[in-house]
Design a protein around this nucleic acid. Structure first.
Lengths: 115, 115
DNA sequence: TGCATGTATGCACCATGATGCAAATATACA
DNA sequence: TGTATATTTGCATCATGGTGCATACATGCA
């Protein structure tokens, strides 16, 4: 069984405030949903057309999401195609869930931790 | 296979900006780690003793975490014991990961390739 | 080169929220 | 009841960041 110190090091690794802050802004969450709901990448203009905020603001939000690795950007001519980094995001969420589960005594684990 | 509309409704359900905003603040993330690293609940005073911020601020942060269901509070005499809502949090993270994975077809292959 | 389109950035404004101190509230105990 | 301890809340301050507009930058095309 993992020691508590070990599990909490994992937790620190996956519980990145920067990432969660990025996801915690309504406009950015909406962007994420738009990207998730489309097969393939979308341009800044396309995304801005579906949101009630200025294109420049969308561009800035996408930068924030890119900086934390939630989306990737690829220039194609005049356009920049943004794509959800789905695999990375899913992996991060699952790793965090695993780290939390290892830390927290729940159910059987709680009984085991007690003896 | 789930339709895109269905999967994105799931996404909207689990991608709660409020929750992520709560986790995205460094002091609150630190509180979460403290709670995860302790067997059982901790009081406000105990938590505040381990952080470089005022006890009143800790109390407020705990309220934010409680409002989004990440921690639970239980009064015991003069003290209030805060406990990580570990099961709920783990469930939420896994559900979000599942919803994302269902939305992004490339994410699935990417994840499997990574294993 | 000049022009059109797409995107990013500088700037100012304003709302939100994190923080500490002081005061109020809650509870236990003598 | 009064006192001590634990927690919450009112208040003021200050930093951060979301927003839109105007402008600069990047790219493709005639």
């Amino acid at each position: 069984m993992k020691s508590r110190t070990t599990c909490c090091r994992d937790l620190e690794k996956w519980l990145e405030p920067e990432t969660f802050r990025a996801l915690g802004e309504p406009s950015r969450a909406a962007l994420l949903m738009l990207l998730a709901g489309t097969r393939g990448p979308r341009t800044v203009g396309e995304l801005a057309a579906d949101l009630p905020i200025d294109l420049s603001v969308v561009s800035r939000h996408l930068k924030v999401l890119k900086d934390v690795g939630v989306v990737t950007a690829e220039r194609s001519g005049k356009e920049v195609r943004y794509r959800l980094a789905c695999g990375d995001l899913v992996r991060m969420l699952r790793n965090l869930a695993d780290a939390l589960e290892a830390c927290c005594p729940t159910g059987i684990t709680e009984l085991e931790a007690g003896r």
